[in-house]
Every structure is written in C-alpha cells, then in structure tokens.
C-alpha cells in the first residue's frame, strides 16, 4: 500500500467525477463537460507516469544525450495526441447537441428520448 502517488490519485478522483457526471447528469452539455474531465484526468495520469524526479524536460541542452538527464518523452507525445483528439471529439459532440437542441428544444436527454419515441418534437 503506497499512498504517495498523489498525482495518480488526483487523476483518478477527477476521472471519477467526470464519469459520475457522464452517467448521472441528464443535461447533454454537462455530460460533455464530464467527458472532457475524464479526458483531462487521463492526461494528468499519463503525464505523471512520464515524470522522473530530478530530471529535465526532454530537450537536449548543452549537447548532453545521456538517458539519465531527461524525463520520459513518450507520455508527453501521447498526451499531445490525446489533447487534440479530445478537442475534436468535444467539438463533434457539441455540434450534435446543437442539432438535437434545434430539433427538440431541450437539452434533457430523457425528454429527448421521450419525444423521439413519440415521433414528434
């Protein structure tokens, strides 16, 4: 039992908050906010995994190319990829929500389901 992984614990708490929002809130916009929070939690987790204490960012300074001088560059690259994909995903989700709102004039997912089932608006 190791309770010193603060960053990882914080990331998992954030993930839990995001997941709860995603599952329990009926408002579409708040669901999307929850979705973005789970994304951010995963980025925090990955970035924390790549850190090695006492080392520098992986940009070669003074020609030192020893592996012992820099932190792990792979999680940084993965997070870079992830942030962009998360932005794109959020944009598509929000656009779909705008469409749904124009059609049903509500953001409540239950009301939308009801109205869609009845075939009206």
């Amino acid at each position: 039992m190791d309770l010193t992984n603060y960053f990882e614990i914080a990331a998992m708490i954030l993930f839990g908050i995001g997941l709860t929002l995603l599952l329990l809130n009926r408002n579409m916009i708040k669901k999307i906010i929850g979705f973005s929070m789970t994304d951010s939690a995963i980025f925090l987790y990955l970035a924390a995994k790549g850190y090695i204490s006492g080392r520098k960012a992986p940009i070669v300074t003074d020609g030192i190319t020893a592996a012992e001088a820099y932190v792990n560059p792979i999680p940084s690259g993965l997070v870079l990829t992830g942030i962009v994909v998360s932005v794109a995903g959020s944009a598509v989700l929000l656009a779909l929500t705008v469409r749904l709102y124009r059609m049903y004039h509500t953001l409540d997912l239950d009301e939308i389901t009801d109205k869609a089932r009845k075939g009206g608006r």
Partner: peptide, 27 residues
C-alpha cells in the same frame, strides 16, 4: 457503477510503482 469504478481505480493507484522513480517499468 460510478462509485465502484472510481473506488477501484483509486485503490489501484496505491499499488502502482511510486511517482517519479527512475526504475519504473515505463522507463
């Protein structure tokens, strides 16, 4: 489900290799 998954994840982080260690398997 939300509470269960969050608890499980937080419990798992306590078993992970410690933060900032050079000898972690990711390095």
């Amino acid at each position: 489900m939300a509470a269960g998954i969050s608890l499980l994840l937080i419990l798992t982080t306590t078993d992970l290799p410690s933060f900032g260690d050079d000898g972690n398997p990711v390095n």
